[in-house]
Amino acid sequence: MKSVLRIQDTVYRFFDSDIWYSFKKSKVTIAAACVTVIMILSAFTAPWIAPHNTFDPATLDLMDAFTPPVWYEDGTPKFLLGTDDQGRDIFSTILYGSRISLFVAFASMLLAMILGVTLGLVSGYLGGAIESIIMRIADVQISFPAILIVLLISGLARSVLPNVRHEEMAVWVLIFAIGISNWVHFARTVRGSTMVEKNMEYVQSARVIGRRRATIMFRHILPNVMGPVLVIGTIGLAVAVLTEATISFLGVGVPPTEPSLGTLIRIGQSFLFAGEWWIVIFPGVALVILVLAVNLLGDWMRDALNPKLR
């Protein structure tokens, strides 16, 4: 009973808060949020809403290959945005493709966040040698471009894993690689905030009653450093979508049997100058809209959570 009241109270507080107010005030943000939500929803419900199951080779007909979009003379309403070289419906491949792109991005950001926040908290709160080691590793890692690290890890996985295993592991390798290459931002930010928070009197008060360090770090400090983490996470999500697309575009990401947006663009780019522009342009536009919308959300969040700008 009490917990129900608490949830009601929390919901009420949210809609009464400055953050919700600044959200309501910004039309761009509302639009970006709508686009993001629609894209995420449609991506994850792809198997039910997509007109064709592009992963099932039995449904494909090579005769349908290179059908232009519906508004061309040769187009048919069966393939809204045309088809590719194997007769796959572009609209459906975009839905399935963004599903993989978003899944990889979300999972890798979650990994980066858990890793970065934990390491940041530990190094900020404990200090000393542990901090030095963690932060020096971070320094070294940040001096390499993230894409290079991802390439390195996926290359390594490719040579270590047997070929058969590799196909099915590809997505997980990619998630691991992108996650590992992005923890540093989280760790640095969290460490900075933690060093401020740990000197606050509420932390000392917890120390006076002898609470364990893990309790203080995760129960007391963590909720107070989460604001910037959410901002970095959101902007990082857009970056992860792009990183995944780049890797798949280069051909070392997800296998072509399960194409992501990046894979689609790679496949399509060879037909761009042959006149079949729709094969590359539509996945490209979908990617740009997705990344732009998520970035706009991240920008708004950064402003809304920053008390100095309010």
Binding site: E201, Q204, H220, P223, N224
Partner: peptide, 15 residues
């Protein structure tokens, strides 16, 4: 037990 100086910093704002 201890009572601190700054009433704004001594209570966890998220609790």
């Amino acid at each position: 037990a201890m009572i601190f100086q700054d009433p704004y910093a001594s209570l966890n704002p998220r609790w």
